[in-house]
Lab assay of single mutants.
Amino acid sequence: MRDETLEPLPKNWEMAYTDTGMIYFIDHNTKTTTWLDPRLCKK
């Protein structure tokens, strides 16, 4: 489920979907991926 109230992704981040429809996030700065939304992981 998407939460439209979240702010935009940080610079150089992208949201993508797996072949089965699961959301993951791509950090183009470090060339890594994560299941965790970077907008929710702020310190």
Results as ranks from 00 to 15, higher is better:
26 I>R: 05
9 L>V: 05
31 K>V: 04
5 T>P: 13
37 D>M: 00
12 N>S: 07
40 L>W: 08
8 P>D: 11
21 G>Q: 07
30 T>P: 00
37 D>S: 08
31 K>Y: 04
11 K>W: 08
17 Y>E: 15
36 L>R: 14
1 M>Y: 10
41 C>L: 14
25 F>T: 02
4 E>V: 09
8 P>M: 06
39 R>V: 06
29 N>M: 09
20 T>M: 08
34 T>E: 02
11 K>A: 13
43 K>P: 15
17 Y>L: 13
33 T>E: 04
11 K>L: 11
23 I>F: 08
23 I>M: 14
13 W>R: 02
36 L>E: 10
22 M>V: 13
40 L>I: 10
2 R>V: 10
23 I>T: 14
13 W>I: 04
33 T>A: 05
34 T>D: 01
36 L>A: 12
22 M>I: 06
11 K>G: 10
8 P>Q: 09
29 N>K: 10
4 E>T: 12
42 K>S: 12
6 L>K: 09
9 L>C: 01
16 A>N: 05
32 T>I: 10
16 A>H: 03
2 R>S: 08
18 T>A: 08
4 E>C: 12
23 I>E: 15
41 C>R: 13
23 I>A: 15
22 M>A: 15
3 D>A: 10
31 K>E: 13
12 N>D: 11
38 P>W: 00
24 Y>G: 01
31 K>R: 14
37 D>H: 08
41 C>P: 15
10 P>D: 03
40 L>C: 13
17 Y>N: 07
39 R>G: 05
35 W>V: 06
5 T>G: 12
25 F>W: 11
14 E>C: 05
22 M>K: 15
26 I>W: 02
4 E>L: 10
42 K>Y: 07
19 D>K: 13
34 T>V: 00
14 E>P: 00
21 G>W: 01
29 N>R: 11
22 M>C: 13
31 K>A: 10
26 I>D: 02
41 C>F: 12
25 F>V: 00
33 T>W: 04
31 K>N: 08
19 D>S: 13
13 W>T: 03
33 T>V: 06
9 L>M: 10
10 P>H: 02
16 A>T: 06
16 A>V: 07
6 L>I: 15
39 R>S: 06
42 K>V: 10
13 W>Q: 01
31 K>L: 08
34 T>Q: 06
40 L>A: 13
27 D>F: 01
12 N>P: 04
33 T>Q: 04
11 K>F: 07
32 T>Y: 04
32 T>K: 06
2 R>Y: 07
9 L>F: 05
34 T>K: 01
25 F>N: 00
15 M>G: 05
30 T>C: 06
33 T>D: 02
22 M>L: 13
41 C>T: 14
36 L>G: 09
1 M>K: 15
37 D>W: 02
42 K>P: 10
41 C>H: 15
15 M>L: 12
23 I>N: 09
39 R>I: 05
23 I>S: 11
35 W>E: 05
27 D>S: 02
27 D>Y: 09
3 D>S: 12
30 T>N: 09
17 Y>R: 15
6 L>R: 13
35 W>I: 06
43 K>V: 12
26 I>Q: 03
17 Y>D: 05
17 Y>F: 12
43 K>T: 13
36 L>C: 10
4 E>Y: 05
27 D>T: 00
19 D>N: 10
18 T>P: 00
3 D>V: 09
43 K>H: 13
40 L>Y: 07
